[in-house]
Design a binder for these strands. Sequence first.
DNA 1: GCCAACGTTGGC
DNA 2: GCCAACGTTGGC
Length: 153
Amino acid sequence: MAAMRYWLMKSEPDVFSIDDLARAKVEPWTGVRNYQARNFMRDGMGVGDGVLFYHSSCEVPGVAGIAEVASAAYPDPTQFDPKSEYYDERSTRDDPRWMLVDVAFRRKLKRVVTLAELKAQPGLDGFPLLQRGNRLSVLPVTKAQWQAILALE
DNA sequence: GCCAACGTTGGC
DNA sequence: GCCAACGTTGGC
């Protein structure tokens, strides 16, 4: 069994928030269409890994809750659905291009730990989220970063 | 709404 | 294989 890892996953709360995940309990993380993010889900994640649920593109961007990886990677069904905004005509069921994992709700933070706070935290130098121009929606977090972020709650 | 940063596409 | 054009992300 691989050691547990930690991740951060971005979601726009207008589309899918931590409260939506709390209601859903478990949600397939559809719509990732970036190869690096896909590779993290496909090759890096294991069931039980910790996930920081990050709200992006909103009034107060920041970490809003904690979730966990709840499945191995499998093909994102939306890539096969012509009616989906995530449809990819280049993808086939024999050779799917996009993968996802299921994400399970663990808890909501007592308050949102904001991006501004993360930037001000000395222990988070080198955290990929804070690096210039980073747009990855799924990214790895070290145990030290995980602890430093949750210490701000 | 703006715009910097970056990934992808496609012509050559 | 290069690289310009284009589209998207996401903070502000």
